[in-house]
Simulated assay, not measured.
Amino acid sequence: MRETFVRNKVLSVLVIILLLTNLLLLFFFVWNKPADPARTSNRSRGGEVMQLLEKEVGFSKQQLDQYKQLKEQHWERMKTSFGELRTARDNFYKLLNENSVADSVITAAADSIGSRQMEIDVQTFRHFREVRGLCTPEQLPHFDSVVQHVMKKMNNYRKSPPKEDSLKR
């Protein structure tokens, strides 16, 4: 066998190169997994707001530090609200397991979801009011424009078209 490799040096070198290339590809596919798109988009969205505040509104380093504090406080409050909203939705859809459910029970469960969502929207509104309070009078028009842009993006994200239903194929 060794004699065959010696006789066909070119072929031997090509086999070794192909083997190394395959190992390299295997390494990249197994150990170099792409980032989770959901996590990346969440991270970039938070970073995007900071970049907008810095570049579009003209926030100083001090204002950005104050914004970071407000943002952390806001998300601590929001964690509870999002958990309550998730629980309200879970309870609502658990009603599907019941054979018969009164319309009043369905309406009460839907109202519970609505009130939780309202709390989230009010907290978000108050958060942006606090951030707006960090602005100088010259920055206010820029901030108002940026907030409208961010809110439109958030609403478009929530209203993104549904993915294709696999059952309809």
Rank of each mutant, 00 (worst) to 15 (best):
W75R: 15
S100D: 12
E72I: 11
V147T: 03
Q117M: 08
E76W: 06
R43A: 10
R43I: 12
F128Y: 05
H149M: 10
M154I: 13
R39S: 14
I120E: 00
Q63G: 08
A102F: 15
M118Q: 12
N155Q: 10
A110R: 09
G47K: 12
S60W: 01
P34F: 01
E98K: 15
S81R: 15
G58Y: 03
D103M: 14
Y67M: 01
R86V: 11
H127K: 05
Q117E: 00
I120Q: 05
A108D: 14
A108L: 06
R77D: 05
L96S: 07
S60C: 06
L140Y: 00
C135T: 13
R116M: 06
R86S: 14
H74F: 13
D144T: 10
V150M: 01
S60A: 03
P141K: 04
N42H: 09
A109Y: 02
R45Y: 14
K71I: 00
R132K: 08
E54A: 14
M78T: 08
R129D: 01
G47A: 15
S41C: 10
T40M: 14
Q139H: 03
P37A: 13
A88Y: 01
R86A: 15
G47E: 12
A109N: 03
R132P: 01
S41G: 13
V147K: 12
G114M: 02
T136G: 08
D90K: 15
H127V: 00
E84I: 10
V101C: 07
M151T: 15
Q117C: 08
T80V: 11
M118L: 06
C135P: 07
V122W: 01
Y157G: 06
V146Q: 00
L52V: 01
L85W: 04
Q139L: 04
H74E: 01
K71C: 06
A110D: 03
E119I: 09
L140W: 00
M151A: 15
R116T: 07
L53T: 08
Q51T: 13
Y93K: 10
M118K: 14
N155E: 05
G133P: 01
K68E: 03
G46I: 07
N91V: 07
I120N: 03
L53H: 05
R43Q: 12
F82A: 08
E130I: 06
G46C: 04
P37V: 08
R45Q: 13
L134D: 00
Q63H: 02
M78S: 02
N156G: 10
V122R: 04
E119S: 02
Q63E: 02
D121N: 14
T87I: 09
G133M: 01
Q63S: 11
R129A: 12
C135A: 04
E98V: 14
R89K: 11
L70R: 09
Q51F: 03
F128I: 00
L140T: 01
R89L: 13
F59M: 00
Q62E: 03
P137W: 05
D121F: 08
A38M: 15
V105N: 04
V105H: 10
R43L: 11
R116K: 12
S104G: 14
Q51G: 14
